[in-house]
Amino acid sequence: MVDVINKRPGVLFVDDEANALKVFRRAFERDFQVFTASSVDAGLKVLESEAQTISVVISDQRMPQRSGIAMLSEVRRLYPEKIRLLTTAYTQVDTLVDAINEGAVYSFISKPWDLNNLRKEILSAIESYSTACEQQSLLTGRIEELKQAVLDEKIMEIGNVAVNLSHYVDNALCPIELLISKIEDDLVQDSKTLTKSEDRATYLDFLKRIRVHIHSTSTQIARLHQANSPLVPDSFSRIDLVEVLQQAMTANQVLMNGKNIRIEHQIGPETCHIWGDRERLVDLFNFLLAEEVVSLPESSSASIDISQLPGQDAISITLEDRGPVPNQVAPSHLLYPFNVRSGDPRQMGVFLICAYLIVRSHGGSMHSSLREGGGVRFTFELPINQPDRSDIKLRSGIAN
């Protein structure tokens, strides 16, 4: 059964006269959700507990201890979106000037009340409140769109740099790889042309470390290129995300065991199928698992939840952990290169970027936030339905 009462706008009336509170309630409780208080402090407590319901605050000016202007000024500071009305039997100029100067009131109402006029004032105030809330909602939505656009642009710039540099880096690494191989061969063969025999083991170990570092850097950049490569509409099929996650868990088990990282996964009661590129979605979970392994200390745990969003044609993937986050780094900044949580800049932070690129190429979104008690929560939302072919081409690939 629909609760009609809770659909009515709420009005808070503050007056130290008990009779005035009774009259107000009897006059308007059929029209509005009426809340009353006999003092400023009591009124602020009511507003604190019913802030989601109350649209309009009406206060009498003449009250002991704190005046109506003081009340409404405090409401303006704490809840600037609430519409504020002042009732008074006194028309002193200084009272009106104070109220105007503090911006505390939407309108003045003289005592004794004309209930019809008071009802009109309240309805007008509610309409203003609704309009302001709608405009604020639109503004908030627009701000979120702009934030997403800015983030996309930042990631696109990062992707452009990484993808364009990868070609030149690979070209530069090839001769270095050949040179290191030659030096390794000479050292292993005990050649005296390069260095003294007692130093060869040290140099050999050093050169092997260089090779590992070069290979790791090249692989990281190649991952960005792979995650950013264009999607092919014909590659899309109906994918079971639970199966894909389990496949990735199996493939990365050795990696997780190396640091004793435990990843728990929970599945919602609904089927979790979407249309997507299977290979790319496998990579998505590979990148998320790799992100946890490089970011978390040894013997840590994390969780991945997959479920369908209620009432929406979308699947939510939530990754949570209690790993460290640098104080100066906001969750959204973890998408920027080298803002790595592990403290090792050699990790470069590309795993999360790659996951983001894959989700965005599938028409999805990503949100990040800090968890209470420490750690990070990453939420990815992916549409269920098969996308239009032109949409796939439009959002695939940052730099081609």
Rank of each mutant, 00 (worst) to 15 (best):
A222T: 07
A51W: 08
S361C: 07
L204E: 00
S237P: 07
D388P: 05
E157K: 13
I261L: 13
D186G: 09
T219A: 09
F351I: 00
K182F: 15
I239R: 04
F380C: 06
E29Y: 13
F13E: 01
L370K: 11
S73I: 02
F351L: 09
Q92E: 14
Y168L: 09
H362F: 06
E74I: 06
D277I: 07
L194N: 12
P80R: 01
S396F: 10
A37K: 03
L319C: 12
V242N: 11
L151I: 06
N6R: 12
S303H: 06
M71T: 13
L296P: 08
A355N: 03
V56P: 00
E264N: 15
E134M: 09
L224S: 02
V34K: 03
D170L: 11
Y168V: 08
I239M: 07
R8P: 05
A172W: 04
S110T: 12
N116P: 01
S39Q: 01
F380T: 09
A162W: 05
K208Y: 02
A125E: 10
G311M: 10
P233R: 13
Q308F: 08
R8N: 04
S197P: 04
I155Q: 06
A172N: 04
K259W: 05
F35Q: 03
K208P: 00
A227P: 03
L47K: 01
L146V: 13
L173Q: 13
D391V: 08
A132V: 04
L187I: 14
S301N: 15
N160C: 15
V2Q: 15
E134W: 05
E145R: 10
H225G: 12
D31G: 04
T379Y: 04
P326Q: 07
R25H: 14
R211Y: 10
T88M: 02
S229L: 10
S299L: 04
L179M: 14
V294G: 00
G103Q: 01
Q328C: 07
G103E: 01
G349W: 00
